[in-house]
Design a binder for these strands. Structure first.
Length: 477
RNA sequence: GGCCUCAUCGUCUAACGGCUAGGACACCAGGUUUUCAUCCUGGCAAUCGGAGUUCGAUUCUCCGUGAGGUCACCA
């Protein structure tokens, strides 16, 4: 039996968007499900597109989500180096092998000539295929040249059993003599990934949909080397809100780090990402990362693309937030409190957090939800004049009600029980509906458009703050 | 355009060829002593179209339509 080995091989050309992240997640889940090895490799042969800091960004993203790699940069392993930029000699060893069998041949064609051929192909409404001019007209090897892969006449067609899409087959005559080695001596993706996957003993190549068209080329490469190809699994794309195009920056596709900074939980992000294109056939919606690794299988990845719906992510994140014990949650929200809370002590903040836990979709909402606990908000008469219950009452009536509320509260010890009891009594005495009386007191003590339950809020706010705020409103009427 | 692929509620998805096409998000209504939220109850809402195979098709076949991917010295 051979151990399952999957790899995530991003190129450091920018940030890691959610599509790439989900592909990484699937590779991770599959490896873990099979007690296999999850490998990180950095595909950095394209020096021109290299973006400073993106390697660190990749590390941070994977680690935040808990997708620790067993082999790769900073983790080590027996099949390194794990950066393609460090593997030049390895590629050349294999280039020489293939060149010796004429599976690779040099090509000196200029960009201009190739452009011309492409234009012709387009005009004749067919796919571009290199015409093998240099095969018949070789030049000096000292001249700058690329190495092309010679697509053989046989087999006539080549196919594979894709773990998610089933059997896929294409005619080799539709294939182009692709460039395997660039003129700068570095391999293209097709060549380097095949060599790396083979030498790193990758058993399952799980990757995005955009690679199915080049899989036949990779298969031919394996054949030329006389190597056994891995199992392929092509994962569908994640679409933007329009449901038509790949999720992109324009749809404010966020990176993992963006979600981290907004206060999303890695558990929820993983749960959501996995639900995009995978389910285990049951009606369960919530899965911990551990549960996911138990139930995951490539066969149950869906074939069709999924639209990224942030509202569902928000629901899931809120769900996960509600599952935590207060102390655990408190530790997680460090750094998200409003600026006004700097002086507040932990006990007080914990009480506040307890009141808003079930209202939080992500931690970045914390300041707006809790600011009034830490500072006096400006009086906004609109809160009263636009309240559908209170706007019916005259200013004097409101003032009178608030006076009586103040008197009631002054005699309370401000425990939740005592507050509830006194507030209920006041309801009877005034003959007011809770919708009127409680709204008034709530607005007068918080100056916020929304807040947690009245007695709870008052208890946490404390007697002194509550009463002075009522005084301010009294003066304003 | 060539090649490859895909197609169930607005969205994520379930359904050995066989129940009234199920669940979740969102939305709407009601309930839990105010608001927001949670929670509970109910509601709205889908098999792209056409043939064929079959006693029976969301499921299998073909055609059409729509959509996506790819056709780089980028991955």
């Amino acid at each position: 039996m051979s151990e399952v080995r999957t790899r995530f091989a991003p190129s450091p050309t920018g940030y890691l968007h959610v599509g790439g992240l989900r592909t990484a997640l699937f590779k991770y889940l599959f490896a873990k499900n099979q007690q296999g090895t999850f490998i990180l490799r950095i595909d950095d042969t394209d020096r021109e597109r290299f973006v400073e800091g993106s390697v660190e960004h990749i590390f941070e993203s994977l680690r935040w989500l808990g997708l620790e790699w067993n082999e790769g940069p900073e983790a080590g392993g027996d099949y390194g180096p794990y950066e393609q930029s460090q593997r030049f000699d390895i590629y050349h060893e294999y280039t020489d092998k293939l060149a010796a069998t004429h599976a690779l041949y040099p090509c000196w064609c200029s960009a201009e000539r190739l452009d011309q051929l492409r234009k012709e192909a387009q005009a004749e409404k067919r796919a571009f295929k290199y015409d093998r001019y240099c095969l018949k007209h070789p030049k000096d090897l000292a001249e700058p040249h690329v190495m092309r892969f010679f697509i053989p006449e046989s087999p006539l067609s080549i196919g594979w059993d894709d773990a998610v899409r089933g059997h896929v087959e294409v005619k080799t005559t539709d294939l182009d003599d692709f460039i395997a080695i660039k003129s700068d001596g570095w391999p293209t993706y097709h060549f380097s990934s095949v060599v790396d996957d083979q030498t790193m003993k990758i058993t399952h190549v799980i990757r995005g949909d955009e690679w199915v068209a080049s899989t036949p080329k990779h298969l031919l490469l394996y054949q030329a080397f006389n190597w056994e190809p891995p199992v392929y699994a092509h994962v569908p794309t994640i679409l933007g809100p329009d449901g038509k195009h790949k999720l992109s920056k324009r749809d404010d596709a966020k990176s993992a780090i963006d979600y981290k900074n907004l206060g999303y939980l890695p558990e929820a992000v993983i749960n959501y990402l996995a639900s995009l294109g995978f389910n285990d056939g049951t009606e369960q919606e919530i899965y911990s990362p551990e549960q996911l690794t138990k139930v995951f299988s490539l066969e149950r990845i869906s074939k069709s693309p999924a639209v990224f719906d942030e509202r569902r992510l928000d629901w899931m994140n809120g769900y996960w937030i509600r599952q935590f014990k207060l102390d655990e949650l408190f530790a997680k929200v460090q750094g998200f409190w409003p600026a006004e809370a700097v002086a507040a002590n932990d006990d007080f903040k914990k009480q506040v957090l307890g009141l808003v836990q079930e209202r939080l979709k992500y931690f970045a909402e914390l300041p707006d939800l809790t600011r009034f606990f830490f500072t006096d908000l400006p009086l906004d008469m609109k809160l009263v004049s636009e309240n559908k219950q209170l706007k019916k009452l005259k200013s004097e009536e409101l003032k009178d009600l608030l006076e009586r509320s103040k008197t009631t509260l002054e005699s309370s010890d401000f425990s939740v029980d005592d507050l509830s009891a006194r507030l209920n009594k006041l309801l009877e005495e005034t003959g007011q509906k809770p919708a009127v009386l409680f709204s008034l007191i709530r607005i007068a003590t918080t100056s916020a458009p929304a807040s947690p339950g009245l007695a709870d809020t008052l208890a946490v706010l404390g007697k002194q703050h509550s009463l002075t705020r009522i005084d301010s409103w009294l003066a304003a009427f």
